[in-house]
Measured scan of single mutants.
Amino acid sequence: MQRVNMIMAESPGLITICLLGYLLSAECTVFLDHENANKILNRPKRYNSGKLEEFVQGNLERECMEEKCSFEEAREVFENTERTTEFWKQYVDGDQCESNPCLNGGSCKDDINSYECWCPFGFEGKNCELDVTCNIKNGRCEQFCKNSADNKVVCSCTEGYRLAENQKSCEPAVPFPCGRVSVSQTSKLTRAETVFPDVDYVNSTEAETILDNITQSTQSFNDFTRVVGGEDAKPGQFPWQVVLNGKVDAFCGGSIVNEKWIVTAAHCVETGVKITVVAGEHNIEETEHTEQKRNVIRIIPHHNYNAAINKYNHDIALLELDEPLVLNSYVTPICIADKEYTNIFLKFGSGYVSGWGRVFHKGRSALVLQYLRVPLVDRATCLRSTKFTIYNNMFCAGFHEGGRDSCQGDSGGPHVTEVEGTSFLTGIISWGEECAMKGKYGIYTKVSRYVNWIKEKTKLT
């Protein structure tokens, strides 16, 4: 034993070699072989497995989906700052455009905790909710729209109204504003409101030439003092309507412009014939205590009207009353817009006519005020429907199939267009061939041609 100890002390290297040989010859039971080890760690190889990531292109799944990435790591994937920024906006807080917040056709661009709407022409605001041009839906104005110097929408209202708090709607500024039905039992019968379409306001006024200088022999019209197929109006439903009495009662109609003036057809009036105007009328054979009678003290036909040349060209006249009318729910003026808007309103496509005229061709006159909704007829169809001249200051309205029309005794009465609950004068009943005849239409004086003249002559002093 002493000898062994001496050998170990003198030859430590020998001992180490012996131990190493023993270990190498022993069977290893701690580690699995290569094949079995792979069965336990069965993990798919990654895209760049075996390579240094710093030297390969980034992978979106590896960089940002398996674990949260930084902007720089995302930049490695896209290799483009702009594309990385677009991805980053949604990656950080989701897609803010998912709810489609942009209105009126706006395009949404996502941002971090926010979004941006790219608005089409005519709109602005956070969600493109603000109209900035009158060309689109009248700028959301209830009545009139004008573009300011910086191309912003400025709404306005006709006389007797003021802008509401929203700067879009119009509200009454006087007790009985024009064009409004205020009798409670008839307010439910107000005709369907007309909503502004998209309009090209630059070209809204037709490029028409008034044929002022045409000389033409007097034409022989049949029954051209021209509501057939209409309905009984309720008291106060058309408070701007008046009836004219002269040699015979209810020979023509008219509309209240203001307390002192009536507008009617020029062919209705004769110099030297006494005319009485009755406002607030409903049943011409009954006294309903809503009527107001006034005498006409002055007749002003349009300066281009000449019955000797043509009885229905420039067929418009103004009547001055001896005493002002007292405005109330049964006696209310009709609204008159400017030339541009009167023309736009007419193009809405349908209007209402009213009167006490004959209820059928050569038949009896109506006792109760009649009204009828009539569609506008395109000019080409209008011209083809008659052998008589249709001037540019006239328009056609009615039904091709016949059966409904204005008729004798309705002449001078109103053709009105309702705009968001307020009625505007767009025409004056003038003439036609018979009444409600198939293929024939009622012919009306186009008020847009005469609004400046009306307003100039009827100013209240």
Rank of each mutant, 00 (worst) to 15 (best):
G94L: 08
T426G: 00
T422F: 03
A397E: 01
N147R: 13
S217G: 06
G355S: 05
P172M: 05
S184I: 13
V248E: 04
P44V: 10
E171D: 10
T290F: 07
W453S: 01
D131A: 04
S354A: 15
A164E: 06
T417I: 06
W240L: 00
Y22F: 15
G230Y: 12
N258I: 00
I334W: 00
D315F: 01
V374H: 02
G229S: 11
I210P: 10
V419R: 06
S217M: 12
V419T: 05
F221H: 11
E270A: 04
V263Y: 00
T190K: 10
R449S: 14
Y161H: 04
R379Q: 14
S49E: 15
K68D: 12
Q143L: 00
C69F: 03
C178K: 02
Y371D: 03
V242M: 00
W261T: 01
G363H: 12
C268G: 00
A37Y: 05
L376P: 05
L23D: 02
E98V: 08
N213A: 07
Y330Q: 06
M8P: 10
Q143K: 00
V277M: 03
K446P: 03
V374K: 03
N48H: 08
Q96N: 13
N343T: 12
I454G: 00
S423R: 13
I7H: 14
C268I: 00
I334G: 00
L24V: 08
F87N: 14
K146L: 11
W118C: 14
F31Q: 15
F360P: 13
W261D: 00
A9P: 14
V199Y: 13
I309M: 11
T158L: 08
M6Y: 12
D410F: 07
A436R: 10
L60F: 09
F360K: 13
A207W: 13
K146M: 10
T417S: 11
G50S: 07
G21H: 05
R162V: 11
T386C: 09
V331Q: 01
K455Q: 07
Q408T: 12
Y201R: 10
R180S: 04
D198P: 11
P235T: 06
T186A: 10
H361K: 15
E433P: 10
E142S: 13
S70V: 09
K188L: 08
S25R: 05
I334E: 01
R140V: 11
V368K: 11
V199E: 13
T209L: 11
T133W: 08
Q370W: 03
G413R: 04
T218A: 08
V353M: 05
A380I: 10
E433R: 06
G357S: 14
P177V: 04
R3V: 12
I17F: 08
G398Q: 06
R75T: 14
L321N: 00
G236Y: 04
E129P: 03
T84C: 04
S385R: 13
R294W: 01
S148L: 14
Q57G: 11
L460V: 04
Y161P: 01
S423L: 09
R373I: 06
V154F: 12
L211A: 11
W431H: 13
P177F: 00
E124R: 05
P235A: 10
A192Y: 09
C108G: 01
T190D: 10
H267P: 00
R364M: 13
V92T: 10
I136H: 14
S255L: 04
E61H: 10
N343Y: 03
E53L: 06
A279V: 03
E193S: 14
G21Y: 12
R379D: 08
M394A: 09
I15H: 04
L130D: 09
P235G: 05
R294Q: 02
P197C: 05
K152E: 12
